[in-house]
Simulated scan of single mutants.
Amino acid sequence: MELTRKNAYTLLTEYTKNDSLLKHALSVEQAMKAYAAKYGADAERWGIAGLLHDFDYEMYPSLEDHPFKGVEILKEKGYPQDIIDAVAGHAEHTGVKRETMMAKTLFAVDELCGFLLACAYVRPDKSIANVQVKSVKKKLKDKSFARAVNRDDIEQGIAEMELDKDEHIKFVIDALAEIGEQLGV
């Protein structure tokens, strides 16, 4: 198996048909690529981890199956261990430790990307580029807003990467703004 974005996208769309889940995958891919560039890592490789982190979720949404089924599929297809470990570690219930910067970054951007898209959707202009850090932090305190987003995971991801919360939120907003049109925000 050749490790390419095209092959990863084909795998994603084989298992994922839901538009919201596809946009989430694209947003996490984008945030991962931006952080890879910041850290001098392989942006395509990190992007592939982001693109595929939830590829099995639509077919296997239970805690017993996700991301375990996806990890099995990635192993069968010959994906590299660092990508498999990042995908496995993005979900706390797997018990897989996040030991690489790729894995830590995937965990740190996953829930935040979903939250930021929700923040953009409720704006009058629906523009991710106009989402403000202050507004995001206020909405994070409102447990009824985007209630499916795990705020503890967002905080834990920031802590694991030893990031400034405001800078992390702003960095991910800016990354997503680069593909806002593709994301519909």
Results as ranks from 00 to 15, higher is better:
L3M: 15
R5M: 12
K6G: 02
Y9E: 14
L11C: 03
L12C: 01
L12T: 02
T13R: 13
T13M: 07
Y15S: 06
Y15H: 10
T16N: 10
K17W: 06
N18L: 10
D19M: 09
L22S: 04
A25F: 04
A25L: 13
L26V: 07
E29N: 08
E29Q: 14
Q30V: 06
A31L: 05
A31Y: 02
A31Q: 04
M32D: 00
K33W: 11
A34G: 03
Y35M: 14
Y35S: 08
Y39G: 06
G40A: 02
G40E: 12
A41L: 11
D42K: 08
D42R: 03
D42M: 02
D42N: 14
A43M: 09
A43S: 15
E44F: 06
R45A: 12
R45V: 04
W46Q: 02
W46N: 00
I48A: 01
I48M: 03
A49Y: 08
A49Q: 01
G50I: 00
L51A: 00
L52I: 08
F55T: 01
D56R: 08
M59R: 15
Y60V: 03
P61G: 11
P61C: 09
L63F: 15
E64N: 11
D65Y: 10
P67F: 09
F68D: 11
K69C: 06
G70P: 00
E72C: 09
E72P: 08
L74Q: 10
K75A: 14
E76V: 04
K77E: 13
G78V: 07
G78H: 08
Y79T: 02
P80K: 02
P80D: 10
Q81F: 04
I83Q: 01
I84M: 01
D85T: 06
D85W: 04
A86R: 00
V87I: 14
G89F: 08
H90R: 02
H93M: 07
V96N: 05
K97V: 09
E99C: 05
M102H: 07
A103Q: 00
A103F: 00
T105W: 03
T105V: 00
L106F: 06
A108D: 01
E111A: 14
E111S: 13
L112Q: 02
C113A: 03
G114V: 10
G114M: 08
F115Y: 13
L116P: 11
L117I: 12
A118G: 11
C119K: 04
C119Y: 00
A120D: 03
Y121N: 12
Y121W: 12
D125A: 03
I128T: 07
I128P: 01
A129T: 07
N130E: 14
V131R: 01
S135Y: 09
V136G: 12
K137H: 04
K137S: 04
K138Q: 14
L140E: 10
K143T: 15
S144F: 06
A146S: 15
A146M: 13
V149K: 13
D152Y: 12
D153K: 13
D153G: 11
I154R: 03
I154M: 15
I154C: 09
E155P: 02
E155V: 10
Q156D: 10
G157T: 02
G157Y: 02
E162R: 13
D164K: 12
E167W: 05
V172H: 07
I173H: 07
D174I: 06
D174Q: 15
A175Y: 01
G180D: 05
G180M: 05
